[in-house]
Design a protein around this nucleic acid. Sequence first.
DNA 1: GCTGTCATGTAACAGGTTACATGATTCG
DNA 2: CGAATCATGTAACCTGTTACATGACAGC
Lengths: 180, 180
Amino acid sequence: MALEHALLVALRERPASGLELARRFDRSIGFFWHATHQQIYRVLARMEGDGWLTVRTVAQSGRPDKKEYDVSAAGREVLADWLAADTTVEPLRSELAVKLRAASYGDRARVRRLAEEHLAEHHARLAAYHRMAADQYPDPESLTGADRDRFLVLRGGVRLEEFWIGWLSEYLETTTEGQR
Amino acid sequence: MALEHALLVALRERPASGLELARRFDRSIGFFWHATHQQIYRVLARMEGDGWLTVRTVAQSGRPDKKEYDVSAAGREVLADWLAADTTVEPLRSELAVKLRAASYGDRARVRRLAEEHLAEHHARLAAYHRMAADQYPDPESLTGADRDRFLVLRGGVRLEEFWIGWLSEYLETTTEGQR
DNA sequence: GCTGTCATGTAACAGGTTACATGATTCG
DNA sequence: CGAATCATGTAACCTGTTACATGACAGC
């Protein structure tokens, strides 16, 4: 139970419609959380029912109306309470890791190729994050408050990609093409 | 859909009962996958029904009987097919990361303390993984096949903990106690 | 007219979590 | 005798995914 809270965070940063939230989840917030629009619509409806959000219908020129959600006073309280609550260390779930471990029960060369594909993808993501950092935070030293928090989470995204690149590189260097 | 496959991997390494698998998932395999015993029992039953596993009841002295599962020929084929299939890069889901980003909407000092607690936990895990590596793989250079694969996944566990330690340390150094 | 995008949703299903139940045995 | 461990499971619930549906407008 935390999509609610991730949505409260996103909406405190800026009120938005369901689709806008889904798009935002594929970028900034999405380093460490993800959700599809279907899931977001469902949860938004529940949150509105619980009084955590307010809605207003916004007419747009040349586009369908949208429902813009904002966090209510009750929602702010829920968010503050959640922030103060204990949080356990979640296990990372990686299908690729299971495959790396299992390589000897199938086509080892194929598993290597999967690792290479993932490595390329992580390189691309790292480059994208570096670009975001350069664009949005040209002077990190001077950041404060919510801006600094967002920058530091982007730093986490960078470091996570570096983790993958480091590990997969080690894997690929240690195992070699046509091996036992 | 991959708990099935993680279980096939675990059972190919060594036949086991449901509870033994649950315990194993909290260690070795569990760096990158996790499941509770309830979930494991449910999935084992389905896999047996699908003919991926064989079972035999093993009597034990001073303990209840256990059902020991092993992978059937059909199960081996399923595993090999899955290994060759494409795997997408999964997003990491971290409640703590969302809280770090949201610190300015609640008690910032409290969020810092959560980060400190997680940092301590990751230090402890890293130490445990280093101990495992030293105990189980005293001579990594000479490893081959499945042993080398298992070692390399343990290396991933080590690197993942280093990621957390690096990031949370950066976070704690950049934000300071009684700050805006 | 067709395709693509914006925008919101429903329905069915698969996967995962939490709580509880049972029964035997060992250990203090 | 009570608590802890071993072992297997059921039931209810919550979360997340996939597929599909609708309608309006923009651009080719």
